[in-house]
Amino acid sequence: MKTLYLYTTLGCHLCEQAKALSWPVLEHYGYRLQEVEIADDDDLMACYGVRIPVVRREGLEQDLGWPFSQEELALYLSAGND
């Protein structure tokens, strides 16, 4: 199963919205969600601290930042999967 990383932190209500919106799309494309706590890593805080929630596909450097729709997430997950 492929992994979609959700960069998040404790108490992030937007992250909870992103997670809820993502579930149907993840299931459809065969992804599992792995939450990454950014507060535990200075580099992640510097990169994502003011941008969360952000998702990133395993093996892909490009990420998708909030706000995004289910349709935008579906396009992101399906891009390059020919």
Score class of each variant (00 low, 15 high):
Leu14Tyr: 07
Tyr7Lys: 09
Glu35Asn: 08
Cys12Trp: 07
Asp63Asn: 15
His28Glu: 10
His28Phe: 01
Tyr31Gly: 14
Leu26Glu: 09
Leu77Ser: 07
Ile52Cys: 03
Tyr7Asp: 04
Arg32Lys: 13
Ala18Asn: 00
Leu6Met: 13
Glu35Ile: 01
Cys15Asn: 11
Arg51Val: 03
Glu35Trp: 06
Arg51Tyr: 06
Leu33Phe: 13
Tyr7Thr: 04
Leu44His: 03
Ala39Val: 03
Ala39Trp: 13
Cys15Glu: 02
Leu33His: 14
Leu77Gly: 02
Cys15Ser: 14
Val55Asn: 04
Val36Met: 10
Tyr31His: 12
Leu10Asp: 15
Gln34Met: 12
Tyr76Ser: 07
Val36Asp: 09
Ala20Arg: 05
Gly49Ile: 10
Val36Ile: 15
Glu58Leu: 02
Val50Leu: 14
His13Ala: 10
Ile52Val: 13
Asp63Gly: 13
Ser22Phe: 04
Glu35Thr: 06
Gly30Glu: 05
Arg57Asp: 02
Pro24Glu: 12
Asp42Glu: 14
Leu26Asn: 09
Phe68Trp: 07
Tyr7Val: 01
Arg51Gln: 12
Leu73Met: 03
Gly30Ser: 02
Lys2Tyr: 15
Tyr31Leu: 12
Arg57Pro: 02
Glu27Cys: 01
Leu60Gly: 12
Thr9Cys: 11
Trp66Gly: 01
Leu75Phe: 13
Cys15Phe: 00
Val55Arg: 04
Arg56Met: 14
Leu75Gly: 10
Arg57Thr: 08
Leu60Ile: 11
Val55Cys: 05
Cys15His: 08
Glu71Lys: 05
Leu44Tyr: 02
Val55Trp: 00
Tyr31Met: 07
Met45Ala: 08
Ala79Tyr: 14
Tyr76Lys: 04
Ala79Leu: 11
Asp41Ile: 04
Asp41Asn: 15
Val25Gln: 05
Asp43Trp: 02
Cys12Phe: 13
Ala79Phe: 12
Leu4Ser: 09
Val25Gly: 05
Cys47Arg: 15
Asp40Met: 11
Glu37Arg: 09
Tyr31Gln: 04
Glu72Gly: 13
Asn81Trp: 10
Phe68Tyr: 05
Ala39Thr: 08
Tyr48Arg: 08
Val25Leu: 01
Pro53Ala: 12
Glu16Met: 06
Pro53Cys: 13
Glu61Ile: 09
Leu6His: 09
Leu75Gln: 11
Ala46Ile: 06
Gly59Glu: 02
Lys19Leu: 07
Leu33Trp: 11
Phe68Thr: 01
Glu61Lys: 07
Pro24Tyr: 00
Phe68Ile: 02
Leu64Gln: 09
Asp40Tyr: 02
Cys15Tyr: 04
Gln70Phe: 03
Gln70Pro: 07
Asp82Leu: 15
Gly65Thr: 14
Leu6Ala: 13
Met1Asp: 15
Met1Lys: 05
Pro67Arg: 02
Glu72His: 07
Cys12Pro: 04
Phe68Glu: 03
Trp66Cys: 01
Val36Phe: 00
Thr3Asp: 06
Trp66Asp: 00
Asp40Ile: 06
Ser78Arg: 04
Arg56Leu: 09
Asp63Phe: 01
